[in-house]
Design a protein around this nucleic acid. Structure first.
Length: 492
RNA sequence: CGGGAUGUAGCGCAGUUGGUAGCGCACUACGUUCGGGACGUAGGGGUCGUCCGUUCGAGUCGGAUCAUCCCGACCA
């Protein structure tokens, strides 16, 4: 139920948790480090899915589904990849329970030990590539462009609601191509799909770039990322797209016969975004009154709250509201009439604000008489009384404006917290205050590691669109020559 | 896995030198309210994380154990 949310200034972590739980998005599950996604939270996730799915289809991608359990032996094939996940896998060892012979409850039946353990997928590269082996024989079979929406499990040491749960929902795309160029282009294309989605739908300004070798996905030759800035100035990796080279094709022996009749290994990509995007949404746009949802992702765009004393008023207002709802829905907006008669208007206002609904209508006898409605917008917390005449157009424009305003606010916030930095002492100080620092880097893993050890800051990316800065300089830490600046930040 | 903390009603918490469990919110009923989180009255709800010990008696003391949270290391 709606309750006051901790102020951001008091404790950012607590504020975030309060928002997630009190806005009815999710709650901690009884299972360690997992979350229950509640219907309202899931509606946001579904909206994300539908927008992304449409974009994938446009890129020629098809949805498919692969098994949750992966035989342990599949993991023996790609050493580098496995090294990245081995420490955080859930393993199925038995297949039966029995009554505890010593008393109450159940125990694992020791007789039911599996001959080969099954790994609950931490990601599906291994099982998908074992499957692709059977699908690919000729150049005519390529490219294969598959995506799956599913859950994965990573037994993280430390978890955080939405941001790093032991089990999370995501989509993972896995493609196979005839040439390195095709695969690299696909990886590039998909990161741009994510960037468009983040910017236009989620109203998140993101930086697109390459990960440094240290931060790369296990087994990838190149990892592209979208990096967003949260309101405490920390970076959040919101999506990644990997160019996997021929690593997986070689490990799983996936070859095709080319036009010349020769056997060749295929080239691969994989790319994914997860329910972490919900975390990004909350931390990037939320305020002390609750969630602030961009209209493009809001499950409810307009909520209507009737204000009345008598049944007569109630009925008259509801009639008007249903009429308005019909008109707005015809324009493609999602509308909810909150006619719960057990709650007072003030309570409903607070509750819908907590849930981030972009536009709220309040209509009482006064409005009914004047042919007006009180329209409140969530992003600016302002309200005004507007005429019912031409309301469809007014609301369409307003939703557009809210979408833009939310983006602009996040954009301006980031702009005021990104700066160039060429002095190591200054770097150490500023990076702790929640800034993205554009610095020269000598390109070595050693330097990056040392900077991380001393400051906890990592290279978020080597930017490719916004913040590209190719210029001669010297590494901020080692003093060695550098040809471009990269983005340093402390991340989630 | 290191450092810190916490487990008492659905949630948030109090509980003194050991004496048999309470507050706020939420919930139920009735009434008055209703243009920014209403109020009154009356109710219901608990193996005090678990186990062992000390004691006439343990939420409280001792030990063990489990779980959760925060800060690190690891990661979408």
């Amino acid at each position: 139920m709606a309750k006051e949310v901790t102020k951001r200034s008091e404790n950012y972590s607590q504020w975030y948790n309060d928002l997630v739980m009190k806005a009815d998005l999710a709650e901690q599950s009884p299972v360690r480090g997992c979350m229950v996604i509640k219907p309202y939270g899931y509606a946001i996730w579904e909206k994300m899915q539908s927008v992304l799915d449409a974009a994938f289809k446009k890129s020629g991608v098809q949805n498919a589904y692969f098994p949750l359990f992966i035989p342990k032996s599949f993991f023996s094939r790609e050493a580098e990849h496995v090294a990245g996940f081995a420490k955080e896998c859930a393993v199925v060892t038995h297949h039966r329970l029995m009554n505890d012979p010593d008393g109450k409850g159940v125990v694992v039946d020791p007789e039911a030990k599996l001959e080969e353990e099954l790994i609950v997928r931490p990601t599906s590269e291994t099982i998908i590539w074992s499957t692709y082996k059977n699908w690919i024989t000729s150049w005519r079979d390529l490219p294969i462009l598959c995506n799956q929406w599913c859950n994965v499990v990573r037994w993280e040491m430390r978890t955080r609601l939405s941001l790093r749960t032991a089990e999370f929902l995501w989509q993972e795309g896995h493609t196979a191509h005839a040439t390195a160029e095709d695969a690299a282009a696909k990886a590039e294309e998909m990161v741009q799909v994510y960037a468009d989605f983040a910017r236009n739908t989620m109203a998140l300004p993101v930086i697109v770039g390459h990960k440094s070798p240290n931060e790369r996905f296990a087994g990838a030759l190149d990892t592209l990322t979208i990096e967003a800035m949260m309101q405490d100035g920390k970076a959040l990796q919101a999506g990644t797209s990997h160019f996997l080279g021929q690593n997986f094709a070689k490990s799983f022996d996936v070859q095709y016969t080319n036009k010349e009749g020769k056997q060749e290994y295929v080239w691969a990509t994989s790319w994914g975004v997860s329910t972490r995007l919900m975390g990004a949404l909350i931390m990037a746009h939320g305020d002390d009154n609750g969630l602030v949802l961009p209209p493009a992702i809001a499950p409810i765009q307009v909520v209507m709250v009737p204000i009345y004393k008598t049944d007569e008023e109630h009925n008259a207002i509801l009639d008007k509201m249903y009429e308005l709802k019909k008109g707005l829905e015809a324009e493609g907006h999602s509308v909810k009439i909150d006619d719960r008669d057990t709650l007072r208007p003030g309570f409903k206002f607070a509750e819908w604000e907590l849930k981030g609904v972009p536009v709220r209508f309040a209509m009482g006898p006064r409005d009914l008489q004047n042919g007006t409605v009180e329209v409140a917008r969530r992003d600016t917390l302002t309200k005004e009384t507007v005429a019912l005449e031409g309301i469809e157009k007014t609301i369409a424009d307003l939703l557009d404006d809210i979408q833009k305003t939310i983006y602009q606010k996040a954009f301006d916030f980031r702009a005021s917290n990104v700066e160039k930095c060429d002095d190591w002492n200054e770097f150490k100080e500023k990076i702790q205050t929640g800034k993205f620092l554009l610095c020269h880097w000598d390109g070595t893993a050693e330097t990056e590691q040392k900077i991380k050890d001393e400051t906890k800051a990592t290279i978020r990316c080597i930017p490719v669109d916004s913040f590209v800065c190719e210029e001669e300089g010297v590494d901020i830490y080692s003093g060695k020559p550098s040809r471009q600046r990269v983005v340093f930040a402390i991340s989630y």
